[in-house]
Amino acid sequence: MKKEHDQGKYKYGMVIDLDKCTGCGTCMVACAAENNVSVRPDESDKQRSISWMQVYKADNGKEFPEAETVYFPRPCMHCEQDGRGGHAPSCVSVCVATATTLDKNTGIVSQIYTRCIGCRYCQAACPYKARYFNWWDAYFPVDKGLERYLSPEVSPRMRGVIEKCSFCHHRLMRARTKAYADGRRKIKENEYITACAEACPAQAITFGDLNNPKHKVAQLIKSKNAFRILERLNTKPKVYYLSSRDWVRKIADNPVDEFSPISG
């Protein structure tokens, strides 16, 4: 039977260049706008606000005027493993209702809102705090008119369920549909780009197939400056970072033992 779409082994991933990232937060806004993330009147309650892409701020711990800041934009890492060799990310293996899964063909960790019972076990299990619970109903008061910008490509969530970065999965669907309409089986590198990568004004985010040596991401992760957050947890994230600053790479991974700086 001929398959409709190319179901080959893809491993979509992201590389974020922290030397370029300016901490501007456009990726956060782009993600929220793209994915119908609700905005509440008080977004300063960070423990309860939702941001699939969260920019974290860190410093080198030095005193004025040696202090330096770095920003870590953190989407869902779309981990490949749970940290002990289990071939599903921590959040997936714990989910009670199979409401989140790892798609072996794309590497994308999904989240099915209408399946989720809201037990939040996945949230407890994710070391990256990438999962967000809807403590309230989405904030779209009647007559305010805000619901008019909602995209039909991503279903708005109800109260009581978990949501998280989907690597803009609907954009993959969009690209697949287009490729199919054009009679192609493969989608091109620039056809499936996440909203955050597309929006970043500093071009700090690159997205693509880590399995495809021709894709920029696959080349970038070979850099000596490439690293992942909490690498030693062995969750095998598909989001990589680049930084030429030793302290930045160091701060990303709880280094108990020796950290080997890269000269130059």
């Binding site: 409401a99 989720c116 019972i117 809201g118 619970f133 109800m158 009581g160």
Partner: peptide
């Protein structure tokens, strides 16, 4: 749980 109505999904 956030969605008690769906508790049986477990």
């Amino acid at each position: 749980i956030g969605q008690p109505i769906r508790g049986w999904f477990i």
